[in-house]
């Protein structure tokens, strides 16, 4: 078993205009036992960064909005700079339960796995039916274009070993980032595992999820194909 120091576990939270919930998200992560929290304010127009700093997180900011994928990558780079051994990414809208972090990092701590993918689809109880269908379509397209079938290619709740964080090299800025990570796992032959996570579909997080409309989905697919041919 590899040895990991608890204070080298970093939680990366990409956030865009999340000042209403970011404090609760940070407090929940802290209560789950993780103090190294990096919030990336992705060029938002509210006080996400200030609220995050007051709550005790390390907050950095994109001067302009570059998308969830870009913010996540910036957070991972920041964690690498701070000498992280394990990096966990979690959404900033409060839909993920930080109590699941333990489940995500355990396989990496055991030294068996490079990437742990949190998946909503192994136990989709409470998930709206149209989200399940959307997700399945996303999984099939990801499998067809990127070569690996996973049950939740669009989940942002993931854990990476230091090695995986060094090897994975993404270029996508927006929602296609999550699928590109799957491609990187496949290309770099990283060892991965899927772990079921719970998702809280609150009114707030649902409002955010609605922003990933059908057209955004089409745009994501177009970006994935474009990334391949360009």
């Amino acid at each position: 078993m590899a040895t990991f120091s608890e204070n080298k576990i970093f939680i990366v939270v990409p956030a865009y205009n999340e000042e209403k919930v970011i404090q609760d998200v940070i407090l929940e992560i802290q209560n789950a036992g993780y103090q190294n929290i990096i919030v990336v304010d992705d060029g938002g127009t509210d006080n996400t960064r200030a609220v995050a700093e007051r709550a005790g997180a390390t907050a950095i900011r994109h001067k302009i909005n570059r998308g969830k994928g870009a913010a996540t990558k910036t957070g991972i780079e920041a964690a690498k700079l701070l000498r992280a051994d394990i990096i966990v990414t979690i959404d900033g809208d409060g839909q993920h339960d930080p109590q699941d972090i333990k489940k995500l990092i355990e396989p990496i701590k055991n030294g068996r796995i490079d990437v742990v993918l949190g998946t909503r689809l192994l136990d989709p109880a409470g998930m709206p039916w149209y989200k399940i269908i959307q997700n399945k379509i996303g999984n099939i397209i990801t499998w067809y274009l990127f070569g690996l079938y996973v049950t939740d290619s669009q989940s942002g709740f993931r854990a990476y070993s230091r090695r995986a964080a060094e090897l994975i090299n993404t270029k996508s800025d927006r929602y296609e980032y999550d699928s590109e990570v799957i491609r990187e796992i496949y290309l770099r032959k990283l060892k991965y595992i899927e772990v079921p996570i719970t998702v809280r579909y609150t009114e707030y997080s649902m409002g955010k999820i609605q922003k990933q409309s059908f057209w955004n989905g089409v745009k994501t697919v177009y970006k994935m194909i474009w990334g391949l041919i360009n």
């Binding site: 910036t74 780079e77 700079l81």
Partner: peptide, 11 residues
């Protein structure tokens, strides 16, 4: 460029 600037701040 945006990322480099954010990380510079952190450094």
């Amino acid at each position: 460029v945006t990322r480099k600037e954010s990380l510079q701040e952190l450094r």
